[in-house]
Amino acid sequence: MKSNLIVAKFWNPDTLMDALAEVHHKGIPVYDCYTPFPIHGIEQYMDIKRTRLTIASFIYGLLGLSAALLLMAGVNGGALDLGWDIKSWQIDVGGKPYLAWVDFVPIAFELTVLFAAHGMVITFFIITGYYPGKKAELLDDRQTDDVFIMTIDADKVVRHDEIKQILTEKGAFEVKTTA
């Protein structure tokens, strides 16, 4: 975690939001907040853009769809020349056409969902940097229980005392600067 942060701790999410609104109004950039549960509407005070993970998911889904169709058309339909002489191995299965598109729908759908879901979650973990066994960097051992934290990058703001004053005024029960 970044050092030299102004840390303000609150015990009530409403108080935190109130303080955030004030800080945002004054044009002070917020570094991050740490809360035990997601607080809706917090993004507007922190200039958080809507994540593009949804777009990523869509692309993964398309990837899954094309992978599925290529696989099935290539394998059962003999539509692809994957380097082997597949054409000669088209197999008559119950008199169905080799490219039985209707039969391909269920698997195409499932692979779309599979790729979209897993691709998105893996990307989420990559961009957030969470991984199994990672040691959490905590500012307070209750920030995942009932303490709500706002941090401001002390390097990016001047007049630290004034900011701390505002935070205390707005209800922070503890305000400090990390080393």
């Binding site: 197999i91 008559d92 299965v93 119950g94 008199g95 169905k96």
Partner: peptide
Amino acid sequence: CETVCPVLATVH
């Protein structure tokens, strides 16, 4: 029977 075999064990 051929259509439902998942592993192409019975084909024409």
